[in-house]
Design a protein around this nucleic acid. Structure first.
Lengths: 334, 334
DNA sequence: CTGAAAGCGCTTACAG
DNA sequence: CTGAAAGCGCTTACAG
């Protein structure tokens, strides 16, 4: 492919002049600029971004580390991130980690070697090694959907999972429910733990906490189905269930449908996330919506700010979730 | 950050020697190599992939252009592509085009300037300008889920949409249905048109084609709901519907549920894609499964082959879809 | 307004 | 086995 030398030679001008013409530098006459632009067309010249990046120490590339791009929750966030970033001329490179700590570290290594300008990351397990890498990283980073661990000077954008969980539980209480079950996410899940804590605090402050109403779940529909079965076996007098995410909630609804337990007449269910699934005609799950677009955009905003003002730490953002009332909760009748 | 010069200086060796140590070149003594590796650790040196790429004319980066990463269909493919590629040391960069021709071209431009080593693309509308760009592109490319237009020397990996559609329709015929509706995708959709053609050919070969049984749909659940309404209005004596994708099929099921038309007792529905949605307890949509993993892996295989043997055109692959029988189709009773 | 020169951080013949 | 030198394709002071 033609390079900048070829177009310079083609016109008998210097490489510097061609460079200036391409980059809209003011110090180049309109006339030569026009000639150069023409030569570029005929030679089909495209500037080499790699070379440019090397010299400018800027690649216009941002890394976005997420657990699972096929998880609808993250693909929505990723879309928002990509859109906002594209508007500023940045390319985003995804890192699908499958919540695998090895892959998480590989992604960061990669980002360093490939000279990404910044990182937006959703690490899962945050072990010492990763924290160490992050602390040595001389690059703007923002944590997404995860609070920054103490000691790291990195801002975050997260939903207030704890508050949101208290809203969900209080909503069930306001409908008269007292016997409220909880289907959790894996113990290692930061978000799961926050939601759990919210549930716990509200329930125990009302003197309604009962360890029999808790069950370990997971993240998937499958896991929700199983968990609902267990929960029901532990306590058949439950009147409501708060499931830590929508997929679990949908699994719970499936189990209930299979066992002819009518929702919301016999049992109310509330979820968390507001996935597309939740809005299906047969599901209509009442849930806490996380403003995914907003989270993605906000993370980009913080990152770009840090890139612009080197060395500053942007201020973290905690975003409130919103109760979306559909058709899986109703007031207790008796 | 430390560079290769720093580590060379640190040990009093030459830059070349450090380079050789890093790249496992045989011509370097075990002893100096050990020293160098140690110095690298203490200086926290990471090689600059940008500089390396510039000189080697190889970036170990592959571009993957897809319409919509939040479409579960594509995120599954993307996952498979990423996994296979990661095994070979490549980084994948997604381009989310939203089926926007401007974005499609931007992505290709980007890929050229950033010196990607190859491209896997799913272009939507394939206008002259894009074809022109592609023909001038001096890079391995493979088309994914789309046949290559005549004249472009680019291999493709696609599902045999036409054959699959005939299988779906014949399945309905085998259940005794004669009055079979079709909910289509947008006219601009290549896959939609192939599936339409399959439906048409089978129906007309049986003398059963009726223009009243056709309706324009779209791609979404929403569109499927509307389309089902229209279709039913056009011909209330329909006993089965083939919807060109699962989302449309699910929308159709929603409309039918809302209008108390029982599936499959009064009406059979078959979809296309086998999304996760299709397997929900309330949906259980019979559908044609596209082997997404296999498609992604195959595309990578072709691409890597073309990268390895420069100038060759790999041989295209047409993959068969598979009928997945669930619970939305049954034999016609009377 | 234009050009010659240095340099970004590497790799790779070439010579020893 | 090791090093000096050229070069990948650009940008950017510096001088004119």
């Amino acid at each position: 492919m033609a390079n900048i030398k070829d177009v310079a030679k083609h016109l008998g001008v210097s490489v510097s002049t061609v460079s200036r013409a391409i980059n809209n530098h003011p110090d180049v006459s309109q006339e030569t600029k026009l000639h150069i632009l023409e030569a570029i067309k005929t030679l089909n010249y495209r500037p080499n971004a790699i070379a440019k990046g090397l010299i400018q120490k800027k690649t216009f590339t941002i890394g976005l580390m997420i657990p699972e791009i096929s998880d609808p929750f993250f693909s929505d966030i990723a879309n928002a991130v990509e859109d906002s970033l594209a508007g500023h001329g940045y390319q985003v490179v995804y890192g699908n980690t499958s919540r695998n700590p090895v892959k998480e570290k590989q992604f960061i290594s990669n980002a360093i070697e490939r000279q990404f300008d910044g990182l937006i990351i959703t690490p899962d397990g945050l072990d010492d090694e990763l924290v160490d890498m992050l602390s040595k990283l001389e690059k703007p980073v923002v944590f997404l959907r995860r609070k920054t661990p103490a000691g790291l000077p990195i801002p975050f954008v997260d939903v207030n999972h704890y508050d949101a969980a208290t809203i969900a539980v209080r909503y069930l209480l306001s409908l008269g429910h007292k016997n409220i079950g909880f289907i959790g996410m894996p113990q290692t899940s930061h978000t799961g733990n926050e939601r759990h804590r919210g549930y716990r605090d509200v329930m125990s402050s009302c003197g309604l906490l009962d360890e029999n109403n808790l069950v370990a779940g997971g993240r998937t529909i499958e896991a929700g189905r199983e968990a609902m079965g267990k929960l029901y076996a532990q306590n058949p007098s439950l009147t409501a269930v708060f499931s830590a995410n929508d997929l679990l909630g949908i699994g719970a609804l499936e189990w209930l449908a299979i066992h002819n337990i009518s929702v919301p007449d016999q049992l109310s269910v509330i979820g968390f996330d507001d996935l597309e699934y939740a809005n299906l005609h047969w599901v209509q799950l009442t849930t806490m919506a996380q403003p995914r677009q907003e989270m993605g955009r906000k993370a980009v905003e913080l990152l770009l700010q840090m890139i612009a003002e080197k060395g500053t730490e942007a201020v973290s953002a905690l975003i409130e979730a919103k109760l979306i009332v559909r058709r899986t909760c109703k007031p207790i009748s008796d």
